[in-house]
Structures are given as C-alpha cells and as structure tokens.
Amino acid sequence: MHVLTKVFVFIAAVLSVALSTLVIAFAVNIDKIREDYQNLASAKAAIEAQSAAASAISDQERSRLNSVIEQLSREQATLKASLGNLENERNTLSAAKAKAETERDAITAKIAELGETTKTQATLITSYRDEVTTLRKNELDFRQRALDMDNRLNDLESQREVLEQNFRAVQEQLAEAKRSSASAAAPAAGIVSGAADQSFVYTGPRIQGRIEDVKVDASTGKTLVKLSVGTNDRVSKNMKMFLVRGDQFVANVVVITPDLKWSVAEVTLVNKGLQVTAGDLVVSRID
C-alpha cells in the first residue's frame, strides 16, 4: 500500500471518527431540539387555547361593556335632558326671583309710603282726639246743665203736682159742698148718689183708663181690680165706673181706694157670660 494510501486511510479513519462524533452530537441535539420544539408547540397550543378562551371572555366582557356603555350613554342623554330642563327651570326661577325682588322693592317703597301716611294719620288722629276730648268735655258740661235743668224741672213739676193736688182737693171739697147742698135741694144736680159713702157717677169730663190687674179678695170673695187712673185723673172714692170691651159692656166697678196714678175698685155687677180681665177699658160714663 502506498504511503499516501495509508495516510489517506488514516485521515479517512480520523475523519470518520470525527464525522461520526459530529453526526451523533448533531442527532442528539436535533432530537432534543425536536423535543423542545414539540413542547413549545404544545405550550403554544395551550396558550392559544387559553388565548381563545380569554378572547371569548374578552368578547363577552366587551359586549357587556358595550351594553354598559350604551346604558351609560342613554343615562347620559337622560341626564343631559334633565340638565337642560333644570337649566330652563333655573332661568325661570331666576326671572321669577328678579320679578320678586322688583316687587319686594316696590312693596318696601309702598311700606315706607304707608309709614309716612300712618304718621300723618296718627297726627290727624291725635288732633281729632284732642278735638273729641274737647267736644266730650263740652258735652259733659251740656249734660250737666241739662241734668240741672231736669232737676229744676222735676222740682217745678213736683211743685205743680202738689199745687194740682191741692187744686183738686179744693175742687173735691167744692163738689162735696155742692153735693151736700144739692142733696138737700134736688137729686137732678148731676150727681146720682145718696149718702157720702154711696157710689156716684162722675158727670165731669170723661175719665178713661185700663184694668191693670184682677184679683179675688179671699176674705170677702169679692173681685177687686186695679185701675190705671187715680186722683191725678179726677178719680175719687165711691166713684162708679164702667168696664167695656170693644163695644160690649162687661161690668160695673166702684172705686174703694184711689191713689195718685192708680186705684183699686170693687166689681159690683158683671155682664152674664163675661169675666173681667186685665186690659179692659174703664170709663167714667158710657156715651
């Protein structure tokens, strides 16, 4: 064998060993790389699956958020509308406030004016009060003078009544004297009467009054009446008077106790079927 052959065979053997070493290493590395690649592929698939799931979840979340966004958009629109309404209301209220302030100022001015008017009226009232006080004082003085005059008048009236009573007494005495003289002369003198305690009919001016009360005397059983006329009206004791009701005769009464302004009489004759009642007319003669 040629030496070159040996050399080249040796080199070939060495190269073969080196080549085999390289091939083995390469194969091992390739196997590991392939294994790792498969692991990475699996991991990638898992990650992709997770990503798909996350994507689905994100899609759901996105749709949910979109719906929330839409809802919020609607709420925003609603709030904007409410805001617009509130703005309009605010403007309206501002205008009303300005108007109210203007009215307030007007009222304040009017109050001030009324205050001045009140002061003026208070001054007037004070002057009127003073005037009224003066007038009342004058009226009191006038009334005092009127009372004094009334007292004076009453005194004079009392004096007049006393004088009138005296005059009537004198008249009665005169009439009694005339009756006494006439009873001795003739019974046609105008007084139908016998003794002094017998009843008589008054022939002077007609006396007229009313029955004020009717009572029955328990002791005697006789009916007594109270007349509204007395000696002031020329009524005297034993005077015979007549009770009428309308145009109907009721009874005869004889005065038993005369007073100044009233008298007590006894019923002597009653019309059949009738009774003496308060309010009946009593006259001295029936015309």
Binding site: M1, H2, V3, L4, T5, F8, V9, I11, A12, L15, S16, A18, L19, L22
Partner: peptide, 21 residues
Amino acid sequence: ASPDVYTGLAVIATVFLAAAT
C-alpha cells in the same frame, strides 16, 4: 508501491469525509 486506485478511492473518500465533516 505506487499510487493506485485504492489510493484514489482513499483520496476520494477522504475528500468526501472531509467535506461531510
């Protein structure tokens, strides 16, 4: 010995082995 075919084959094998290496 003189280079023969085997030498050539060895050379070729060596060359290819070198290339493969």
